[in-house]
C-alpha cells in the first residue's frame, strides 16, 4: 500500500484525496499503535542489547575457529533436512486432519500439536526412550540393522523435526481449511482420483501455506536446543549445532556466546527476510 500522491488537480479530487488521507490516519488508533510499538520494542530491544554488548574488536578472532563454522554448517544442514522430513510426512498428515473425518480426529489433532507445549528437553527424553539404544524401537533398530540414532547427526535431524513439524502441520491444515474443497470435488467429477486431485489441485492451491509452514518449521529447527542436546548429545562436527555451541560458550565466555549468536542471527535474518516476500505473503 503506497501513500496516495498529493494532487492539486480538480477540486473534487482534492476533496476526495483529503478524505482518504483522513480515513487512513484514522485507521491507526492510538489504542492499537501504542501497544504495537511496545510489542515491537519488546521484541527488538534484546537484539539491540546483543549488538551493543557484542565484542566487535575481538569478533574476527572469536569467529576464526573451525568449530564455529562446523556448528553453523551442521545447523543449516540439519534444519533443512528436518524441514524436508516434516514436509514429507507433515503435509499428508495435515491433509488427513483437514479433509477426512474419522473418529477421534480432534484428539489426534491435539496430539499432533503436543510438541508445541512440551518442554523440548522432555521431548528429547521421550525420543531417547523410544529411539535410544535401549528404546522400544531403538533396541530393534540396533540389533537388526546396527543403527543407533543418538549421538549421530541423524539424531539431530529427528529431534529438530519432532519439535518443528507441528508448526508446519498447523499452518498447512489452516491453509487446507481455507481452500475451497469444491475445486477438488470438481476435479473428482472430471475423473481425477483423490490422489491426483491432491497432487494437481490441492497442492498448488495451498502452496503459500506450505511455504509459510516450511519457513516456520525451518526457523524453529534452526533454534532448537533442548531436544537436540538431550537426544543427540553434543559433539563438535557430529551433533553440535549453533544453539548448543552458544549455550556452552555462555558457560565460560559470554563474549564468544554473543559472537556466535550474532552469526546465527545474521544468517537467520538473511534467510527469513529473503523467503518472506516469496513465501510468507499473507493470503
Amino acid at each position: 500500500m503506497s501513500p496516495a500522491p498529493p494532487t492539486a488537480a480538480a477540486p473534487d479530487t482534492a476533496v476526495s484525496s483529503r478524505t482518504r488521507a483522513r480515513r487512513r490516519s484514522a485507521r491507526i488508533p492510538y489504542a492499537l499503535l501504542l501497544p504495537a510499538l511496545l510489542g515491537l520494542a519488546f521484541l527488538v530491544l534484546p537484539l539491540a542489547g546483543l549488538l551493543v554488548r557484542a565484542p566487535w574488536s575481538s569478533l574476527p578472532g572469536q569467529l576464526s575457529s573451525t568449530e564455529v563454522w562446523e556448528a553453523l554448517r551442521l545447523s543449516l544442514i540439519c534444519a533443512t533436512a528436518a524441514t524436508g522430513l516434516s514436509l514429507l510426512v507433515g503435509v499428508p498428515l495435515a491433509w488427513l486432519l483437514a479433509r477426512t473425518d474419522f473418529p477421534g480426529r480432534r484428539f489426534i489433532r491435539a496430539l499432533v500439536t503436543l510438541p508445541l507445549v512440551l518442554p523440548p528437553v522432555v521431548g528429547g527424553v521421550a525420543l531417547l526412550l523410544v529411539l535410544g539404544r535401549n528404546g522400544i524401537i531403538g533396541r530393534w533398530l540396533d540389533s537388526a540393522f546396527g543403527i543407533t540414532l543418538p549421538f549421530h547427526t541423524s539424531g539431530v535431524v529427528l529431534a529438530e523435526a519432532f519439535v518443528a513439524m507441528p508448526f508446519l502441520v498447523i499452518s498447512v491444515e489452516g491453509a487446507l481449511r481455507a481452500a475451497d474443497p469444491r475445486y477438488e470435488e470438481a476435479a473428482a467429477t472430471l475423473g481425477a482420483s483423490r490422489l491426483t486431485a491432491f497432487r494437481r489441485v490441492t497442492l498448488p492451491l495451498i502452496a503459500p501455506g506450505i511455504g509459510a509452514g516450511a519457513v516456520l518449521a525451518w526457523a524453529r529447527a534452526l533454534g532448537e536446543f533442548g531436544a537436540t542436546i538431550t537426544f543427540a548429545g553434543n559433539f563438535p562436527g557430529q551433533t553440535q549445532t549453533m544453539p548448543l555451541a552458544v549455550y556452552l560458550a555462555m558457560e565460560s565466555d559470554p563474549e564468544a556466546a554473543i559472537a556466535l549468536s550474532l552469526v546465527l542471527l545474521a544468517v537467520s535474518i538473511t534467510v527469513l527476510a529473503g523467503l518472506r516476500d516469496r513465501w510468507m505473503s499473507t493470503p
Partner: peptide, 10 residues
Amino acid sequence: PVTLEQDVKA
C-alpha cells in the same frame, strides 16, 4: 566420547 554434556546431571 560420543557426547560432551552440558552438565554433570545430563
